[in-house]
């Protein structure tokens, strides 16, 4: 039971701690998919945009947001889906990009391919496939350390 409405800053802080279900090293706010949080009277409205229209994580993400906010005592909650403007990997935060690379996934680059191997930092790279283990990733390989790695696609 919430007596005082929590501030939007507090709520954004709670959302900062909700991990992406597929790449748990980054949070939903790192990914840039939570577009707005606002109070409509005593109802909290959270606007979420999908990364890819068929991404199976989307429903889990909504469930995780709801679970987290209800856990903090939010009772009246509405999740809205927003398609436009369409999500772009450019909305990922710098902190999120750094966490991805530390986890072994090369962050998205406007040039369309990874900047360096997330494991040995070599720039000698080759593409294995335009697609990977989730809709948001492609498969690359480092020709120095020979390790394959995931690259977060730039869209």
């Amino acid at each position: 039971m919430v007596v005082e409405k929590p501030s939007l800053e507090t709520i954004w802080g709670w959302l900062d701690t909700v991990p992406d279900p597929e790449i748990p090293v980054i949070s939903l706010t790192d990914l840039g998919i939570i577009r707005n949080v606002q109070w409509q009277g005593d109802t909290l409205e959270v606007t979420v945009t999908p990364t890819y229209s068929g991404c199976p994580a989307t429903t889990i993400i909504n469930l995780d947001i709801e679970t987290a906010l209800r856990g903090h005592g939010i009772e009246k909650l509405v999740l809205k889906r927003q398609l436009s403007p369409a999500w772009t990997s450019g909305w990922m935060t710098d902190a999120g990009r750094a966490k991805l690379e530390g986890y072994g996934i090369a962050p998205p680059q406007p040039a369309g391919g990874p900047e360096r191997c997330p494991l040995c930092q070599s720039t000698q790279l080759e593409k294995i496939s335009q697609f990977g283990s989730t809709p948001c990733k492609a498969q690359w390989r480092c020709t120095d350390c020979l390790e394959p790695f995931d690259y977060f696609k730039c869209i």
């Binding site: 999908p50 890819y52 229209s53 068929g54 991404c55 199976p56 697609f131 990977g132 809709p135």
Partner: peptide, 9 residues
């Protein structure tokens, strides 16, 4: 993955 995009659309 392409199928997934198309089914999502």
């Amino acid at each position: 993955n392409t199928a997934l995009d198309l089914i999502g659309q």
